[in-house]
Every structure is written in C-alpha cells, then in structure tokens.
Design a protein around this nucleic acid. Structure first.
Lengths: 142, 142
DNA sequence: GGAGGCCCCTGTACTCTACAAGTCTTGCCC
DNA sequence: GGGCAAGACTTGTAGAGTACAGGGGCCTCC
C-alpha cells in the first residue's frame, strides 16, 4: 500500500516536473521536448508522413498534425504534399530544423536528456531501465 | 548520447502514458490521478487550505484552486470560508469524498498506483527508487 | 466512372498548468 | 478608528498536449 502511494505520487510529481520543463522551454521560444523528439525522428528517418510519425510516437494523427504545425510555424520543418501519394504529407527538416535536430541529438538542447546529467553517474543505467520498464507497463494498458 | 536519447524518449513516453490514463479516468467519470492525490492529502491532513495544498503538491495556488473546483463539482470536497482566518478556505472531504479517498488509499481506485502491479515484483523497489530520484532531480531544476 | 477507403487537417473539448489581476480579509501603525 | 500594505483565494487568459468526430482531397479497385 505505502509503496503504491509512493509510486503514484512520484509519477504525478514527475509528470508535473516534465510538464513544467516543457512550458518553460516553450515560453523561452526554445524547442520543447516533444518537438525535439519529433525533430530527431524526422532527422533519423529522412522524410516521413504525418501518420507514420503519429504511429512512431504512439499518438493520434491529429495530435501529430498539430505538433507539426508548431514546428512549421517555428520554421523547423516544411510540409509538402506527398509526391508519391497525394494524400500524404511529406515532412522534411528545413536547414534551421536540421541544425536544431543536431544540437538536440547531442543532448545539449534537449531539456529532458540533460536531466540525466543530474542523476548520479552510478544510478543512470538503473534509472533508464526503470523508465523503459515503465513505458512497457504503460503500453500494456493501452 | 544514446543514453540521453533513450532517457528523454522514455520520459516523454511516460508523460504521454500518464496523461492518457488521466484523460481516460476523467472521461469515465472517475477520479483522476491528480484528484486522487489531492483527496488523499486532505484525508491525511484533515482540513487544509488551498495554499497549503498547493505548497504540498508543488503547484500554483490558482491551479490548486481549480483542481479543488473540480472535486467540489464532483461532490467530493466542500469549501468553506476559513473560521480562523477569513481569507483562507477550509477544504474538507464530504462523505462521498471520504469514501473515494479510502478506496484510492487502498490502491484499488488509483490508476497510477495500480500500474505498480504490472511491474515485476522483483523490480518494484528499484522502479520506485528511480522515480523518487527523478523527482528529486526535477525539483533541483526549479 | 464510381465506391469505398485512406490521409490529413480542423473544430471541439478536456486535463493540467502558470501568471496577472481583482476581491475580500487581516493585521499593523498611527 | 482610519488607512493601507500584505496575504489568500478565485477568475481571466493563455498555452502544451491530448483525443475524437467530421470534412475535403486523393488513390485503388472494380
């Protein structure tokens, strides 16, 4: 029981903290963690479609579309009607987006990634494992 | 580098999963995890004021006020002008709120707490420790 | 040339959040 | 007592992120 409480409260606190960081980033005009992830995914995969992105991130296509709108507004990606399939949207990085993805990739700009620096070195692997386990657990409830 | 990426993505995935659960709960008319936490805190402390609650949860008083409005609408808490200090608001559980807090306390109703059941028994302590460490790290960035 | 199905975007709605501003209350000083 | 600053709470506004429903455009298969 007490364990469950500790666990639930820790989860809530983490969710709050992560949200706070995302908001701070957005306010500062920086790339938010969500945007950073999207950017990186596009950088890895080259060009991809909105729905592919949504699938990879595990979110609704409409959400992906809106996230992309934000990145487009920020001039980091460009959307173009799909050349193969006119229903699709090809999402590509702009030069600025490429630079942003690169600095995110190096961890320097990713607010979430740099949190790891604050975790004692010896604990890092354990923490990452725990988080990934948690992701699996959460996916099971889908 | 790769560690940072794994870490950042896991955090994002966790945040998304937790948000999803909260929304599902809300949609079903159940107590959301945030509400559950608030309820429990009130149950533990007896009556408390809005700002005390905000401090305990680490959120803005305005946010706490709105959260309480939701609980009040749901008939789980009652707000009353403070008897000692008229500026404050005494928040108390209603009978229904007390019952809700109890079932939350037992873990049966807390969506987040029950996630722990899905974590392999041998990993639970590790996961909780990792999450609490993460909370500390996040607090440092405040 | 349809008909149905898929892709994407937009409208709408919701959670949780913070800052700013306004109201009411208290407490203090004169 | 009068005045006034400070505190507590709520509400207005704004924003990130999310999902579902619906509409428009495009593709495919018959």
């Amino acid at each position: 029981m007490a364990d469950q409480d500790r666990f639930a409260r820790a989860l809530l606190a983490v969710a709050r903290g992560l949200g706070r960081i995302a908001r701070e980033r957005a306010r500062a005009g920086d790339v938010t963690p969500q945007q950073a992830e999207t950017l990186q995914l596009i950088a890895e995969r080259g060009a991809l479609s909105t729905s592919t992105l949504a699938t990879l991130l595990g979110i609704d296509p409409s959400t992906a579309s809106r996230n992309l709108s934000g990145l487009e507004r920020a001039g980091l990606i460009a959307r173009q009607k799909g050349s193969d399939d006119g229903r699709q949207t090809d999402v590509r990085l702009t030069p600025r987006g490429r630079r942003a993805a690169q600095s995110v990739g190096s961890g320097a700009t990713s607010a979430f990634a740099s949190l790891l620096d604050r975790v004692p070195r010896g604990e890092r692997a354990r923490v990452i494992d725990a988080m990934e386990l948690l992701v699996k657990v959460l996916d099971q409830t889908r």
